[in-house]
């Protein structure tokens, strides 16, 4: 017996993710855009749960919905002088639309030629403990390098955003 992804749950979460992305691009208010992005990220976290990647789903919501969105809102608050500045004129880019459509069309053509070769989900899905063992055995060195990358990036971010002393 093979498991499948629940079609209704997938449709709801995919619709929510796309709705969040479209809302982020069409809203004129920067703060509303940050909240639309938050909605989209939570929907993607739900999709990770559907794929039985529980650890990733939790970390995704923690990092993107928790940290990144709050950081975005802080920077928006710090860089707006007046409340009215958050509402921006409608920005439409024909070149950007053509680029995105061509890219999306090419990827869709590639997916269509790929077909559903593995439509059925394998039943065995390792749990979070297996992921942790893998991360600290086979991927231990990349893991440590990743922690170094984060440390350097955070120190640099603090250094850049500090107040200049004159």
């Amino acid at each position: 017996m093979t498991e499948t992804v629940n079609g209704i749950a997938f449709a709801i979460l995919a619709g929510a993710a796309i709705l969040g992305a479209v809302g982020m691009l069409t809203t004129r208010n920067v703060i509303h855009a940050a909240f639309w992005l938050l909605e989209s990220m939570i929907a993607v976290g739900g999709l990770f749960l559907l794929l039985q990647a529980e650890y990733l789903a939790v970390v995704h919501v923690l990092v993107y919905a928790g940290a990144v969105s709050v950081l975005m809102l802080f920077v928006i608050m710090l860089t707006l002088r007046r409340r009215e500045d958050s509402v921006r004129p409608v920005e439409v880019s024909v070149a950007g639309a053509v680029m995105a459509l061509v890219f999306g069309g090419l990827v869709f053509a590639a997916i269509a030629s790929y077909g559903d070769r593995v439509a059925e989900m394998p039943e065995t899905a390792p749990d979070t403990a297996a992921l942790g063992e893998l991360l600290f055995s086979r991927w231990a060195l990349p893991f440590e390098v990743a922690s170094l990358v984060l440390l350097v990036a955070l120190v640099a971010a603090v250094w850049w955003s500090r107040e200049e002393k004159r």
């Binding site: 992305a21 869709f108 559903d116």
Partner: peptide, 29 residues
């Protein structure tokens, strides 16, 4: 039946929307 193609199609849509936003929007944030 939801296969990997559905996830890839969704990812393609999200990526294209992000690509458009990165080119079209004028605010750095």
């Amino acid at each position: 039946q939801v296969g990997p193609s559905a996830f890839m199609a969704l990812a393609a849509v999200l990526f294209s929307l992000g690509l458009y936003g990165a080119v079209a929007r004028k605010s750095a944030v």
